[in-house]
């Protein structure tokens, strides 16, 4: 079978790597014997591959290196893992502020003399004395709640409340 140069050029690397076999490889080799340009390209391809492979052969990994690696791996495996406590700043700050607010609220509620001190209803009269109130006690009339139906609500009631 006659093969063209472009086909040979495409298969050069696999031929140099020894991966082209059978009749195909035979026809490629036959072409290389006849075509000097393709043979030159094959030389270069084979040279590059040869250099690559021989460069790899030099790197040796002896028993000593393996043993050294094993010792390092064993040391790292048996090392006690360090406990990592990672505190995120925002939740920690929020928790701290919340705790402070709760503590302040509790202090103001419990300690006598605090501004939010609570007392009996009588004491509240001192807090809001009549002199300073907007309305007098007489003016404040709590309407006696009677049983009105919503439909039969007296007009005067609305007017009275509106005026007040």
């Amino acid at each position: 079978m006659r093969v063209r140069c472009w086909l040979v050029r495409r298969a050069l690397d696999s031929l140099a790597a020894g991966e082209a076999r059978g009749r195909r490889a035979e026809s490629l080799r036959r072409h290389l014997r006849l075509c000097d340009a393709c043979a030159e390209e094959f030389r270069k391809a084979a040279g590059a591959l040869d250099a690559l492979r021989s460069a790899g052969e030099d790197v040796t990994w002896g028993e000593a290196a393996a043993g050294q690696s094993w010792r390092a791996i064993r040391a790292r495996l048996s090392a006690v893992p360090q406990r990592r406590v990672s505190l995120r700043p925002l939740p920690v700050a929020a928790a701290a502020v919340g705790t402070l607010l709760i503590a302040a609220g509790a202090w103001m509620a419990i300690v006598p003399g605090g501004e939010l001190e609570r007392g009996t209803p009588d004491d509240m009269a001192d807090v809001f004395p009549a002199d300073y109130s907007a309305v007098s006690r007489e003016q404040v009339r709590v309407p006696v709640m009677q049983e009105y139906s919503l439909d039969a609500l007296p007009v005067s009631y609305e007017v009275e409340w509106g005026r007040f």
Partner: peptide, 15 residues
């Protein structure tokens, strides 16, 4: 192969 050729290393392998 192309990179190797660029480096000027060729012809070591004789046919």
């Amino acid at each position: 192969r192309e990179a190797w050729k660029e480096q000027g290393e060729s012809g070591r392998y004789l046919v």
